[in-house]
Design a protein around this nucleic acid. Structure first.
Lengths: 197, 197
DNA sequence: ACAACAATGGTGACGACGTCAACAATGATG
DNA sequence: CATCATTGTTGACGTCGTCACCATTGTTGT
């Protein structure tokens, strides 16, 4: 007797997100269809519509979950007791590790979306992510480990360098084996500058 | 008498690329369909297939043209006579200006593609683009304006910072008005580092 | 206990899309 | 000027996202 599945799935929303992330990881965002997801989860082709009004809504949810995990990873890598350079290196390493393990997801997270409502949540998630870096730099500035000056500017330089590395990885221009060893040098050069001293 | 267009368009390929870039700029990559392009250009829905085997092939061509224009813009911003800091600033400004004016196109250019054949051309285009930066840094190193050490590492830091800024812009996290003034500070901090000296 | 209702899933349809095969017109080559 | 490659057209197929409508299930108020 084919144990006919119950009419209600139980937690279709999570199941869809899980399947979506697996497909995303395995086949890329291009080959990710609601209908295929529905099939994988064993549900009719229109069922996802109950949980995501749009395909874009599902992608947004996926990206949001990604930010959640990223923020968590960054928090875990935080050790306020460390001096600046190793502390920043740890943070960078965590970010790049995430980028390596979730390249396709990261692309989604970077993608510009104009959904006016989802943007709020998204912006908050981004802000939370960026917060880790801001804290490190603010602390360092407070302790005199780095120069004074507009913190926004310092956040921008450091954030751009990290984000750029992640971009290189996500784009496949930088292999994981090359990226992680490079992070040490990256942070060092960021802190000490390129000019001779 | 509706001047019935000649059976052969004349330069359909270019027309398609032009229309594609316009659509890309106005409505984003999401709403870019071969059929719609064909309509805009006044040609049957399957005609594009003669010039691009795939939708991806068209996107690749678009990205390739983007790299061409970017490399050109970077070359134009090059002034080997300048000392390092203003020279690098000019280069950065050119890159970010391109990012501002071609945010959607840039997304395409960053997108990872696995087409084994197109990758060669693409890699060459990327390499040519990156070359501008490499030249600046190599010259500076030769002149003793920056520290010695693995040029690859220096290229990586600087490239990542620029790429990251462009990413911020393309993602809409950084408004154009905030980006260009920031470039001066960015380059300065890159060269002089964040640590007090 | 049970009726009413909300939430969730199924069915079938629609239009748009990418792609292909078969055919037609045009231009180039000998 | 015949032959052939190039380029565009037509029609079809399968897939997709989305919608309206219906079916089933869980919940809530009495």
């Amino acid at each position: 007797m084919p144990e006919s599945r119950p009419y209600h799935h139980g937690d279709l929303r999570s199941a869809l997100l899980a399947a979506a992330e697996r497909t995303l990881r395995e086949k890329g965002v291009g080959s990710l269809s609601l209908r295929e997801l529905a099939r994988e989860v064993g549900v009719s082709h229109a069922a996802p519509g109950r949980h995501f009004k749009d395909k874009q809504a599902l992608l947004n949810a996926l990206a949001l979950a990604g930010y959640e995990r990223l923020a968590q990873a960054l928090d875990a890598a935080e050790d306020p007791a460390l001096p600046l350079e190793p502390r920043l290196t740890a943070l960078a390493r965590a970010y790049l590790t995430f980028a390596i393990d979730n390249a396709e997801l990261l692309e989604l997270m970077y993608a510009r979306k104009h959904d006016p409502d989802a943007s709020e949540q998204m912006a908050a998630a981004v802000e939370r992510t960026v917060g880790s870096l801001e804290r490190v730099l603010a602390d360092a500035q407070k302790r005199g480990e780095i120069i004074e000056g507009d913190p926004e500017e310092l956040n921008l330089v450091t954030g751009a360098a990290l984000h750029g590395m992640a971009g290189f990885i996500a784009a496949g221009w930088l292999t994981p084996d090359a990226a992680l060893p490079g992070v040490e040098g990256l942070v060092h050069h960021l802190l000490h500058g390129l000019k001779p001293r």
